[in-house]
């Protein structure tokens, strides 16, 4: 998928996969999300960048309600995100989430981690779930670790398993909350490769990251956040080469520095 391709949200008459309308959130006195409006089209890859404390992770987490919002609306595939109960759980099951700290179930094997969702949530028979889990583990390159527990794997391997765990649910869209920030430098690429592969396969993705090379390669759109607002958005080339706001220029300078 090239960056020149139409972003889903721009295709006439198509419902965006994820839409945030006037989303506001406070943590006590701190105004973490200020009037966030955002559309992510089907098959679109959106990269969110910004300094720490800008609200980018919080925004990412509101999409499957790991963070609640004070006001505004969140729509998934045109339907409002339920606020609780069975409906919320069902909506979450359709959205994949990959965390900075992997969060693999520490007491279960790698294979169990990937089959847990399909078996416990979707009622898939164990044998079937294990077969597709092995195929997914194969795809992310950790099939030979299936019988181990998470602590025995490297960070990069754990994150790839976490991606496989999300994929096992056949999600409509996936959120990545700083997926490579906790990794040793030499393991970042193996995770990014899996994500590039996913993006090429047409997965709708919201990726909070500082990996500019990744953004340039696969993002359809880049959103820059600071102080809880979306300051700027555009194609990766536009944004990285000609940022329009002072904040974005400062931020890009600071991360280009190394």
């Amino acid at each position: 998928m090239s960056s020149e391709q139409n972003t889903g949200s721009e295709v006439a008459g198509q419902v965006p996969m994820i839409e945030l309308r006037h989303v506001e959130k406070h943590f006590g006195d701190l105004h973490v999300l200020r009037d966030i409006n955002l559309k992510v089209g089907k098959g679109e890859v959106l990269v969110v960048i910004g300094p720490s404390g800008s609200g980018k992770s919080t925004m990412c987490r509101t999409i499957n309600r790991l963070e609640t919002i004070d006001s505004g609306e969140i729509l998934i595939d045109g339907k409002p995100l339920p606020e609780e109960g069975r409906e919320l759980a069902a909506a979450r099951a359709e959205l994949g989430m990959v965390f900075q700290s992997f969060n693999l179930f520490a007491h279960r094997t790698i294979l169990d981690n990937v089959t847990m969702g399909p078996i416990e949530v979707q009622g898939v028979p164990r044998k079937e779930a294990e077969e597709s889990a092995m195929a997914l583990l194969e795809r992310v390159g950790v099939a030979e670790q299936a019988a181990k527990v998470p602590a025995q794997l490297s960070g990069g391997q754990q994150q790839r398993v976490a991606i496989a765990r999300s994929l096992a649910m056949h999600p409509k869209a996936m959120m990545f909350d700083e997926p490579t920030s906790a990794l040793d430098p030499e393991m970042i690429n193996e995770v990014l490769e899996v994500m590039v592969e996913l993006a090429r396969g047409g997965m709708t993705m919201v990726v909070v990251t500082h990996e500019m090379s990744f953004a340039r390669r696969v993002a359809n759109r880049v959103v820059f956040m600071a102080d809880g607002t979306i300051m700027e958005e555009g194609s990766p080339d536009e944004f990285f080469d000609h940022p329009t706001t002072e904040r974005a220029r400062d931020f890009l300078d600071s991360i280009k520095g190394h």
């Binding site: 499957n64 790991l66 069975r86 759980a89 069902a90 909506a91 979450r92 099951a93 359709e94 959205l95 994949g96 989430m97 965390f99 700290s101 992997f102 969060n103 693999l104 179930f105 520490a106 007491h107 847990m116 969702g117 416990e120 949530v121 976490a162 765990r165 999300s166 649910m169």
Partner: peptide, 26 residues
Amino acid sequence: PKGQVEAAMSLGMRPSKITFKIVLPQ
């Protein structure tokens, strides 16, 4: 760790399942 519960929630597991399958065993 809270992340264990968040991961389970993001898979769509219900609270009782999260308690008995994820939290209590650990």
